[in-house]
Design a protein around this nucleic acid. Sequence first.
DNA 1: GTAGCTGCAAACTCTTTGCAACTCT
DNA 2: AGAGTTGCAAAGAGTTTGCAGCTAC
Lengths: 137, 137
Amino acid sequence: MSDLEQRCAEAGLKMTGQRKTILKVLGDATDHPSVEDVYERAKEIDKSVSIATVYRTLSMLDELDIVTRHEFQEGYSRYEVNDDHHHHLVDLETGAVVEFQNEELELLKEKIARDLGYELVDHRLELYGKKLSSKKK
Amino acid sequence: MSDLEQRCAEAGLKMTGQRKTILKVLGDATDHPSVEDVYERAKEIDKSVSIATVYRTLSMLDELDIVTRHEFQEGYSRYEVNDDHHHHLVDLETGAVVEFQNEELELLKEKIARDLGYELVDHRLELYGKKLSSKKK
DNA sequence: GTAGCTGCAAACTCTTTGCAACTCT
DNA sequence: AGAGTTGCAAAGAGTTTGCAGCTAC
């Protein structure tokens, strides 16, 4: 049983064939797949998986904090398995997503919220850029 | 002629009654209204304004960099007139949006992008929190 | 006069949901 | 056995668009 399956079972979810398939797709993903992406990849393993189940499963996993739903201003959602804390830089020319961490940034966020009189519950930081080497001017 | 009307005229847009109405609504807004909000407020001034025109106008203004479209993970968009550069802290209990600026943060973002080999084109930072005074534990 | 703009309604995209059949536990 | 899960199709929400008529310039 995979680690993801383990966590789902502990949350009381039945381990159906469709769920195993979707969890495998998520576990294997090295990118930030859209619902459609997950659906396509799942179908390659088990043609019977429906997109409704993909939507339902991803919503549950988000609730359980097993995955995170992102909205990178593209008009649809992308998902990512929760792992270490990090942020994203989206390459505007290729759509590639680069992950990064920065301790200084973490501290600064907390401080800004505190100074405004708030307890930081969640946050979102995304950078959008283009490769320096491919810069044309 | 208002400042916003001025900027639109310079961009070559015809100043129709509907556009003036929508620009007035935007100029008067002190919050971050949704399309529906803008539509409702515009209708109070001119009942003939349609929601299609509101959508079309806001899209154009976004293209022209006169307003910014935000997606605060609510399932719809909110708009804001471009002004000074700042970020948002969303109060999770009331939905209120607090604006803030932080120079240190600006520098840090640039540096992170540069270190990753990117030229920063755009970015997004949102904090989500709850009032410290109303914190229950 | 005419290119651009508008309202209306239909169409679109992404996502959610009701339901009857099915399946883990 | 039975609660949870599924596929399907229909419904929802937000947004976009084709079109015929209208309007600022």
